[in-house]
Design a protein around this nucleic acid. Structure first.
Lengths: 242, 242
DNA sequence: CGGGACGTTGACGCCCGTCAAGACATGTGG
DNA sequence: CCACATGTCTTGACGGGCGTCAACGTCCCG
């Protein structure tokens, strides 16, 4: 019985679009323009009219919701090829914020151009229906992760996710993962604090699971043990924090 | 800036379908049959082929995912009028389990009948696209609730949700809310334990916020204070647990 | 009446959020 | 090139919220 679907941080929607409808996108390329955003700048603000649809060409983007108490819940990190700002709400406003984590180059379409493509392509619509439902399933899996899983499990799972994504992007095995975002971004993604992220990584370093080199990258030393932790099979938390 | 959308436990999808496309459903009624399920029995098992689509006519249904460690994450409770088993995944398997909380009567369609209706009704498809996207937003709001909110806030918000739903169903004000599910069901819904639910309700009773009468119903005594707690404005948790 | 399921209450402990101070890196102006 | 400011990461100390275990009370149904 399959319980948790794989969460590699990219939605199936994004992947399928990237792969299947490339020729459609090529037709749409003429309608798009480029936009460069420097690190830390805002790309999308929740509640603003959803005038544009973006596609990351270069850099990393964080997507998040602002909470009442001023904290954030990061819902995902976007990389090259990922779409941003795709919303089907009737009121046509963005349902989340997005910031540039690093310097970014974005491909930008006017929203109505994309909507027009929906009208003329029934198969595209069907695809979206199916894939958004899939996204819903993944969101529910995230609920499980954040509601029930201890911090070390979340961090391990995050590291492996980043490593796997990078392995797929480069096509080679990775033993050093690029982590461009701040600890506080990761914490907001994992539903914890920057201190807890730091502590967990320190404990993993002390146990020779990872190696912390220069800022922005982390070496994976013990892949198997990290997967054990991510699967929630670590005997006790004290095994990690010692 | 609006942060959290209202979560009344029913999805917009379910509500809109119930309201707008009633005549379409009437056309489909001929293709449906009835099914009675006694309390505690399983209706849907995650991973099974999604052969049917259900609509609750009578009773209460809990929808949940099974976790690796044997616990459950309840994703929602369904009441009369709510749909169940609507999935758009290509592989056409259910992505969750569903049990009858009380004795239920269900309306059942073969899945392909519904799919055929999608083919002939573009507006229906568009509606689904929009509303599923809305569901996705709500799922993200639930992530925020479960990842960051203390237990009393979750319980208060659950009580008010139930009360409001019942008020809407009966059309009258409610001061006694029907709670047919077990504490452990509520706990699995709120991402906590049955003991914590019990403790929180006891504390609320001691502070004259609620009144616990006979099994299966709870009286709302101090609506305003409960809303304060649900909004996370209670000064301290010790104010609730004393 | 007895057994089983559910709810209540108490005791205990630990994970982790919070506060605070220090280490380290980066940038800026002199 | 150094002094200083600023932002981020690290590490420690502390305590509270809540999960866990256990015992008891209550209700229901055979």
């Amino acid at each position: 019985m399959p319980i948790a679907t794989q969460d590699d941080g990219r939605t199936n929607l994004q992947r399928r679009l990237d792969r299947i409808d490339r020729e459609l996108l090529n037709r749409l390329n003429g309608l798009s323009h480029r936009q460069d955003v420097t690190a830390e700048r805002s790309i999308i603000i929740e509640g603003d009219p959803a005038a544009s649809i973006f596609r990351v060409e270069r850099g990393v983007v964080s997507v998040f919701k602002l909470l009442r108490d001023g904290r954030r819940q990061v819902t995902g990190f976007l990389y090259a090829g990922d779409f941003l700002g795709v919303t089907f709400n009737m009121d046509a406003v963005y349902g989340y914020c997005a910031d540039a984590v690093t310097d970014c180059r974005l491909q930008v379409w006017p929203r109505n151009a994309i909507e027009h493509a929906f009208e003329e392509s029934p198969s595209l619509r069907r695809l979206f229906l199916s894939e958004i439902a899939d996204e819903l399933t993944q969101a529910q899996d995230r609920i499980v992760l954040l509601a029930h899983r201890p911090i070390p499990e979340r961090v391990a799972s995050f590291l492996l996710t980043m490593a796997r994504r990078q392995a797929r992007a480069t096509g080679a095995r990775v033993e050093t993962v690029e982590i461009p975002m701040r600890w506080s971004d990761i914490a907001d993604y994992l539903g914890t604090t920057a201190e807890s992220v730091s502590r967990t990584l320190s404990a993993m370093r002390d146990r020779d699971l990872v190696r912390t080199g220069k800022r922005g990258e982390i070496g994976i030393l013990n892949w198997a043990e990290l997967e054990t932790i991510a699967a929630g099979k670590a005997a006790r938390m004290s095994d990690i924090y010692r």
